[in-house]
Write a protein that binds this DNA or RNA. Structure first.
Lengths: 184, 184
DNA sequence: CCAGAATGAGACACTCATGTCTCATGTCAG
DNA sequence: CTGACATGAGACATGAGTGTCTCATTCTGG
């Protein structure tokens, strides 16, 4: 029986995104392994949580890279970002739900860097005149991240179909964040 | 020294909205009282958490009533709801952050009723042609609640000015949720 | 000022989660 | 089939958090 570390991590994400303080017992059960085996895979609960956190940050950062958010039209960049970030929405839900994670200064700094990039994207949108300048970029960043997390939860609970999620997120967010054409 | 139960509850909300599994020690410290006194006020941690949860649900439900969400134009109703719900944004953050709360069937049912009312509002908006029908009402409800929570966190962290919060929430959400005028 | 009530501090018993370890069982490759 | 390795089950020690309680101190109203 070869335990697939990745699917154990995935199961952990599924539990932790809903319950950040879930016990190792619960996580092991969700992964279909024993607690002893879980401890063999990760040197402790702290290490598991940190690893899930780091994975989320890495994946989200990768999504920003893949979406080439610094290139071209901002609205198109956000659409690309949404497409890139949807597969890691659940990880994002964990990142926004577990405040204890940020007691680790490395993780805290990585989060700040990520948030700064997201904020810079919206600031660029505002400077280009595509985004609404009266909405603070910090709010746009907060809102975007919370909506990504919301997608993670809604899809997990079956309240939102996976194939609808990118469109739902992009349209709701961009519809609100971008300037409307001036009414004649 | 008269302990003001309401401000103890408020302090608890402030801590629990960020860390749903915060210890009684932390909550007591944040409230400026001893743990013993906290236990004298609430018959246990469970009872405190349930009371905060019930308070949040009651307040949110009151906001729906105050905003008269079933009356008149849907967009105006959502604006009224935003104004009514902003003062309880932090409570909402707790409601969306603590999944263990819903193991209590009474609280779970109250949440479902609240969610159903929010969803019905958006469905009405869709039926009236004001809201976008391609965005599932369940998603709109999820997004709205998550954005309210996001306001709670952002204001608490000083990333969003309280006076900007209602406008920020209403414009972002409604901008995305409502139909744009057809382009000629 | 004084008595009663309220509060804080600290101790203690208990529960639960964690980490660690042992041993029996299961799995897999040669 | 067999040996090596992996895994599960269970036991145990430990620490953190909870609930409960006592006692000293503080507060408050008459």
């Amino acid at each position: 029986m070869a335990i697939d570390r990745d699917s154990v991590l995935n199961a952990a994400v599924g539990v932790l995104s809903r319950q950040p303080n879930a016990a190792m017992d619960e996580i092991a059960r969700a992964a279909g392994i024993s607690r002893a085996t879980l401890h063999r895979l990760f040197p402790g609960r702290d290490a598991l949580v940190r690893e899930v956190g780091a994975l989320g940050l890495r994946r989200f950062t990768q999504a920003l890279d893949d979406a080439r958010v610094d290139e071209g039209d901002t609205v198109a960049a956000v659409r690309r970002l949404v497409d890139a970030v949807i597969p890691v929405a659940q990880l994002c839900a964990f990142l926004t739900g577990e405040s204890k994670l940020y007691e680790d200064s490395e993780i805290n700094q990585a989060w700040d860097r990520l948030d700064a990039r997201v904020r810079a994207l919206f600031l660029r949108g505002q400077q280009e005149g595509a985004f609404r300048i009266e909405l603070p970029a910090a709010w746009l960043s907060e809102a975007f991240l919370d909506l990504v997390a919301g997608v993670g939860w809604a899809v997990q609970d079956g309240r939102l179909a996976p194939r609808d999620s990118a469109h739902a997120l992009a349209e709701l967010f961009l519809g609100g964040a971008t300037r409307r054409p001036a009414t004649p």
